[in-house]
């Protein structure tokens, strides 16, 4: 996880999550992407199917909260995959 200061004084953070397969990566993406960040929360979050996540925030506090809850959500998705996977043949 990298943290940097981007243009206009915003703080950004990048996270790379390795997955064993593209299929599992896209399942995780689809599970994690629908719930957006609060509209006026001063934060944006971008998820990519390559397994990377990028945040841009006005304040370190909101960045910490968002990254923290993302990691909680991610670990629940991974646990669910372990318990109820592997993906069925479509």
């Amino acid at each position: 996880c990298r943290i940097c200061v981007a243009e206009r004084g915003a703080i950004c953070s990048n996270l790379e999550v390795p997955f064993p397969s593209e299929c599992l990566a896209s399942i995780a993406l689809n599970s994690l992407a629908p719930d957006r960040e609060p509209r006026r929360g001063g934060i944006t979050k971008e998820l990519l199917v390559t397994g990377s996540v990028r945040w841009t925030a006005d304040e370190a506090r909101v960045l910490r909260v968002s990254v923290g809850s993302f990691l909680d959500h991610l670990s629940l998705v991974l646990e669910t995959m372990e318990a109820f996977g592997p993906p069925a043949e479509q």
Binding site: I27, A28, N30, S31, L32, P34, D35, H73, L76, V77, T80, M81, F84, G85, P86, P87, A88, E89, Q90
Partner: peptide, 16 residues
């Protein structure tokens, strides 16, 4: 709500 939705979305995809 999010916690429960995450599991529902994940199993729906795993099970197709």
């Amino acid at each position: 709500l999010v916690t429960v939705a995450l599991v529902a979305r994940t199993v729906a995809q795993l099970w197709g």
